[in-house]
Design a protein around this nucleic acid. Structure first.
Lengths: 219, 219
DNA sequence: CGAGCAGCGTTATAACTTCTAACGAACGCG
DNA sequence: CGCGTTCGTTAGAAGTTATAACGCTGCTCG
């Protein structure tokens, strides 16, 4: 057996068409959101008739699932690239922001409104744990605060006993707490900013984001 | 002129049917999300044929816009009710959490994935400023921290000069900053929790939320 | 090198959606 | 008590996802 990537010319062509379909899908998502994604419209853009796309994706949900996986992959790669340049939490925070601003609807595809019944497939959750591992690395490498906040001890105790999500990672409870704060706080700012809830308010979201990122690095 | 609410029997009936439509709409949204909301399905549930609903709402978007307005109204009312019981930030935080858990999809209708082109009508933005006013009241009433964090001064300076969103509210910049932190941090936890990103991780989201709420009250 | 078949694109069709148009009935206001 | 506004209906257009059945093409394997 050769490389598992592209083998026969058939599979090579198939992968190429699948990629083109996904490119058009991202274009639609970026301009109108994922809910407006239309397989028919993609087929029209590609100059072929509607049902032809079903040779490449079983249905609309499967295409979206694939897009979600690719988006997580992209985020994991930017985190990994940032990790090579040093494991500072602040750098990771701004890498996240740049990635989110690059395509807001891609961000919302991962962290926006969930579809009630949707369960992420296993290969997707593997990527999310990879992302979390990068975050935990950065949190564990950070210096603990000189004067720990007394109110944090309760959550630290809880996390010390409920750290299944961290796997085998040797991060202390305070690092776990900081990882969760990184995730939730930065997502909070990004989500509201990208959704446009700050437009017209007059202040600069970047200032708020930077402030939160700094507070995470030096609590 | 009498009350502007319900006047003629015709208007009374119309308002009643509109309310019933919205009830069924909320039911569908709670179980399948807003994107799956179908006017036809609502009509079927109500025992009338599809196009009849267009006598009450011009189109699907207008119905959703009305639902959004009602949701904001509901949130503003719970904030107002909580404000009467005292202006503590922690109480407000947990009132917000209860309201969000009551109907996660309602929360995402307001703070989830945005529709790229959508602009909130003016009567909706009036409710959001009302909500923000309650939050600013609570933040201004809170005690400032004994030892202010040195990194916060930059954001405070920025907010001091960009406080259009606070209107005439006499809150100091540090209170504005705390209001934004309240919004973004709690939204960050709530959004990820309600979207199911914490399921299977093992820890209790309520512990994380409480920790963030406490940190906001005593930074 | 050629035969055969897997894979691909097509059209036709079903079932669904939003939304408009035209018609008829009923309700209540003056 | 009549007339008009309002409402619910059916019919239909235009769009969607998705399946079925039909050829053609070109790769693969003997």
């Amino acid at each position: 057996m050769s490389e598992p990537g592209t083998r026969t010319p058939r599979e090579r062509y198939r992968a190429q068409v699948q990629e083109e379909i996904k490119q058009h899908a991202w274009g639609q998502i970026a301009t109108a959101g994922a809910s407006a994604l239309s397989l028919n419209a993609i087929a029209r853009q590609m100059g072929m008739s509607g049902p032809a796309l079903y040779r490449y994706f079983a249905n609309r949900d499967e295409l979206i699932t694939e897009l979600i996986k690719d988006a997580y992959r992209s985020l994991a790669d930017t985190f990994a690239a940032r990790a090579e340049a040093g494991t500072d939490l602040d750098g990771l925070a701004h890498a996240l922001r740049r990635w989110a601003l690059e395509d807001p609807q891609r961000y919302f595809l991962l962290y926006g409104t969930p579809v009630p019944g949707y369960e992420a497939p296993e290969d997707t959750t593997r990527i999310t744990t990879e992302i979390m591992a990068h975050l935990l690395d950065a949190c564990a490498a950070e210096q603990p605060p000189a004067t720990p906040h007394p109110l944090d001890s309760q959550l630290d105790n809880h996390l010390a006993e409920h750290r299944a999500w961290a796997g085998e990672h040797p991060a202390p409870p305070s690092a776990l707490r900081r990882a969760l704060a990184f995730w939730t706080r930065l997502h909070g700012v990004l989500s509201l900013e990208l959704a446009g809830h700050f437009t017209g308010m007059g202040f600069d979201p970047a200032e708020l984001y930077t402030n939160e990122a700094q507070a995470l690095s030096a609590p």
